[in-house]
Amino acid sequence: MSSYLVRRLLEAILVMVVVAIVAFTLFRFVGDPVNQMVGQDIGIAERDRLRAELGLDDGLLVQCGRFIWNALHFDFGISYKFRAPVTDLIAARLPATLELSLAASIFAIAAGIPLGVHTGIHRDGALSRLIMAGSLIGVSLPTFLIGILLIYLFSVTLHWLPSYGRGEVVSLGFWQTGFLTGSGLRALILPAVTLGLFQLTLVMRLVRSEMLEVLRTDYIRFARARGLTDRAIHFRHALKNTLVPVVTIIGLQIGSIIAFSIITETVFQWPGMGLLFIQAVQNADIPIMAAYLLLTAVIFVTINLIVDLIYRAIDPRIRMSGRV
């Protein structure tokens, strides 16, 4: 078990180094940083001085090594646009995105799995057909449209929920949370639903098809032949056997939710990382983009590792093969 963990951690580190090199190349290929920082009226001598100060005259490997070394110390340099350390900018935005992602994931999983189980068991029921038809909307409507429709209905027409922002936040040291205030929670609902809706339909459809598959297997027939109750068959045997692929997809999707909440954050003016990233792209703010790339990679690698550990908790056969 521990040797497995060590091996997986080494793999994770390798992935991170590769991503760091890719992030570093952003600096080399997306324009000249000095041009981004200074105005037109700065002379060549001044530019050269700045270039030397920033270490841009050093060899490629030296610069790359310095970038990785600094990244290890959570130092991603100064944002060209905001003139502030990238780390501080991201740290201020990260809680908003993580809270939104968490709410969206919980929404997607808590609704997606039961709906998938229901439609898998009662394949031809009227309610199942209705749910499946409805899920097509979730799959096919683009996120920004769903967001705008929700804003139109619940904010503009009904005045129930706020249409933008995070509401009031409470500061817990470095973490600003919206979970503890009424307006924070109310502000969370629409963006979380918008962000989670696609994931919900994905999880639901996956659980459904896996359930249909598992319900046809011999061990489910044998469980029926032993006279087990429907509840035991459906939840103790069938659902558990669908979980390995479902956990895989959920893991990947949570990564996507966190990394790519850009559209939802834009629609709802949610002060998270997605919004920061969009601004960085517009301004060619490479330090932010590079840090964002690394952060996304860390999130995916971490989630993958957790998913692998969950596999092993679910399926004893994977535990066995890992031991060899």
């Binding site: 061990y219 044998f222 029926r224 032993r226 006279g227 087990l228 045997h237 056997n241 399926d315």
Partner: peptide, 24 residues
Amino acid sequence: MRKVRGKQIGMIFQDPLTSLDPLM
């Protein structure tokens, strides 16, 4: 009928490799 199954009528299937829940 569910109560009859298992209790009064048992069934043995062909393939022992697939008849048991692999996760339990």
